[in-house]
Design a protein around this nucleic acid. Structure first.
Lengths: 107, 107
DNA sequence: AACTTTGTTCGTAATTTCACGAACTACGAA
DNA sequence: TTCGTAGTTCGTGAAATTACGAACAAAGTT
């Protein structure tokens, strides 16, 4: 019986991809508006385009976003399927009712 | 007007701390049972205790867990306040309704 | 005091991340 | 075909991450 499951690894992979302010910003944007272009981001973010491209690749590799060629630009949007999976995993692992008595010693 | 806000940084910090299978496992455990000891984890996890200690420090530094001395052991539990904040930020960014009613959305 | 238990800190090494500028690719327009 | 636009890839460093074993620290036990 494995203690660290594939689901732990998947959830951690998603979390890791979310673990940078720039990438968090992109994900927030894409969860609020259906899509965006790299150029839109490049205009408002304080990083050069190659670095941005690296971050977008990170999100793509993690499966959280996808790019669609719309020449000469690339349209980015959420990868809905994986996005839902990430939400489900986070719910499964992390959501618990917050109780009044916290931190109580078991046994 | 900053595009990358403090909330983006906070959320990313939490996500980053969650971005490792071992740490995801620990967080899951603590969200299911109120507390645990390093020794409990060390028994089931495939890493040496110093590495585990490092991961617990990472979670502590991110503010997601807290340790309480209960000599000769240390009792770990979630840092409820920050845990709630993390959930709120994630909810905000995942575009979902906030579940806990008495927690107000900031302004 | 000496020993045991529990966990942290230190030293080290391999790997990954993050950021930049330069070079490159793909495509449409002139 | 040449030029401009949009974005990726490459090469490079600095810094952070991950892992291990050895050494250390704190506190209870004998």
């Amino acid at each position: 019986m494995e203690t660290i499951t594939q689901d732990h690894k998947k959830a951690a992979r998603y979390a890791k991809a979310m673990g940078h302010p720039i990438r968090m910003y992109v994900l927030e944007l894409l969860s609020k508006q259906s899509c965006c272009y790299s150029g839109d981001l490049s205009e408002v973010l304080p990083i050069v385009k190659s670095t941005l491209s690296q971050h977008l690749k990170e999100l793509k590799d993690a499966g959280l976003i996808q790019g669609e060629i719309e020449a000469p630009r690339i349209k980015y949007c959420l990868n809905t399927e994986n996005w839902v999976e990430a939400q489900e995993l986070f719910n499964k692992f992390l959501n618990r009712p917050i109780t009044i008595t916290n931190c109580q010693t078991e046994k």
